[in-house]
Nucleic acid binder design. Structure first.
Length: 322
DNA sequence: CGACTTTGACCGGCGC
DNA sequence: GCGCCGGTCAAAGTCG
C-alpha cells in the first residue's frame, strides 16, 4: 500500500538543495549558524519516534510547491485568517461543549443555533492554526496522507476553473483541516494546505511503525507539525521532484520554509500562487523573516531531510552547499 | 446502515 | 452600507 519510505533516500542533501533552489540569502553566515556541508550533514535520520505521527500527503503525485499567492496571501493566511479565526472560534467552542458528553444532544442544537445566529465573540483574533502548504503534481485532488478526511465543502475559486475542496480530519476532537485546489496555471498541480495539528496518531502510521512518521515533530519552532508532517509524508511517498513550499501561516504570511525540489515548472504569472513561488525573488522575500532554524532542520531530521530533492535540483542555486 | 460526498445556503470579514 | 468572497454548515444523495 504505502510506497516505500524514502527516509533513507540518498536525497539527503535536500537541505542544501533547498537553499540553493531558493537562492536565499546567505543564511549560513547571517541569520543562523548553518552547518557546513549540509548535504553531508543530513546524516541518516535517527530512529523515528512515534511521537506525532502526522499525516502524509499524497499518493500518486509529485510534490511541487505551495501556493501562496503573492498578492493575495490567500493560501498562506491573511484572507483566510478571518475565516480561519472564525473557524477556530467555532472549534474552540465546540470543544468546550463536547467536554460534557452528556450534553451531546444539546450541543448539537446549540451548534445549529450558533451557526444561524452567530453570537460570536468579537475582537478575539484567535491564533491561526499552524499551516503548511505544498504543491504536488497529481491527477488526484485528494491525496492520501495517511489520515482520514471528510470533505465538508467545496467552493469555486476565483479566476480558476478548478474548485477548492475543504476537508476535515475525521478523528474525533481533531480539528485539523485541509484545503485542496488545483493550480489554474497547471491543472496537473494540486495545491494542498494543512491547517492544525493532529492530536492523534495517523491511522496509516499505526500500521506503519518505523516508517518515519515522526520526524516532522522534530521541526520545532514552527508552531505546528501536522502540516509539515503531511507534506513530508507526501513528498516521501511520491518522491516528488518538484518544488515544495511549506509555510506557517500562523505568522501571517510568512512561510515557514520553502523547499525546492525542481524547477521544471514555469509559472510566468506571478499573480498566482504558483507563479509567485516560481520567482526566486518572491521566495527570497518570503522566507527570510522566518526561516526555520537550520539546525533544527538539519540535525533533527526536519522537513528538508524528508523532502526529496533530486540531484538535478541541487544545482539550481549556487550549486554548492556551503 | 454507516461513512462519505455533493451542493446550496449562510455567515462574517474586508474593501470600496 | 453594500457587495464580494472565503470558509463552513447541513440536508440530501451516493457508495460499499
Amino acid at each position: 500500500m504505502m510506497p516505500p519510505s524514502s527516509c533513507d533516500d540518498p536525497k539527503a542533501s535536500n537541505a542544501c538543495a533547498f537553499m540553493d533552489m531558493l537562492a536565499l540569502p546567505d543564511f549560513s553566515s547571517s541569520l543562523f549558524d548553518w552547518p557546513q556541508n549540509i548535504a553531508a550533514t543530513s546524516a541518516p535520520p535517527p530512529p523515528l519516534q512515534p511521537t506525532n505521527p502526522i499525516p502524509s500527503p499524497p499518493a500518486g503525485s509529485e510534490v511541487l510547491n505551495t501556493p501562496p499567492s503573492p498578492n493575495s496571501s490567500s493560501v498562506s493566511s491573511s484572507s483566510n485568517e478571518a475565516a480561519a479565526n472564525k473557524a477556530t472560534e467555532n472549534e474552540t467552542e465546540a470543544e468546550e461543549e463536547t467536554v460534557d458528553a452528556g450534553k451531546a444532544e444539546e450541543d448539537k442544537d446549540q451548534d445549529k443555533a450558533k451557526k444561524q445566529l452567530k453570537p460570536k465573540k468579537k475582537n478575539q483574533k484567535k491564533q491561526r492554526e499552524p499551516r503548511v502548504a505544498f504543491m504536488t503534481k497529481s491527477e488526484v485532488d485528494h491525496l492520501d496522507d495517511g489520515y482520514r478526511w471528510r470533505k465538508y465543502g467545496q467552493k469555486a475559486v476565483k479566476n480558476s476553473p478548478h474548485p477548492r475542496s475543504y476537508y476535515r480530519c475525521t478523528t474525533a476532537n481533531c480539528g485539523v483541516k485541509k484545503r485542496v485546489e488545483r493550480s489554474s496555471e497547471d491543472p496537473s498541480v494540486v495545491m494542498t494546505t494543512y491547517e492544525g495539528t493532529h492530536k492523534h496518531p495517523s491511522p496509516a502510521a499505526a500500521s506503519r511503525v518505523g516508517l518515519g512518521l515522526g520526524f516532522v515533530h522534530e521541526v520545532s519552532g514552527f508552531g505546528g507539525t501536522s502540516g509539515v508532517a503531511s507534506a513530508n509524508y507526501a513528498l516521501r511517498q511520491h518522491q516528488q521532484d518538484h518544488l515544495a513550499v511549506l509555510y506557517n501561516s500562523t505568522s501571517s504570511t510568512t512561510p515557514l520554509d520553502v523547499v525546492n525540489n525542481s524547477s521544471s515548472i514555469n509559472y510566468g504569472n506571478t499573480s498566482s500562487l504558483s507563479g509567485f513561488l516560481q520567482n526566486p525573488e518572491n521566495l527570497r522575500a518570503f522566507v527570510p523573516s522566518r526561516v526555520v532554524n537550520p539546525h533544527t532542520f538539519l540535525t533533527d531530521n526536519g522537513l528538508l531531510q524528508d523532502i526529496i530533492v533530486p540531484s538535478q535540483m541541487r544545482k539550481e542555486g549556487n550549486g554548492d552547499c556551503v
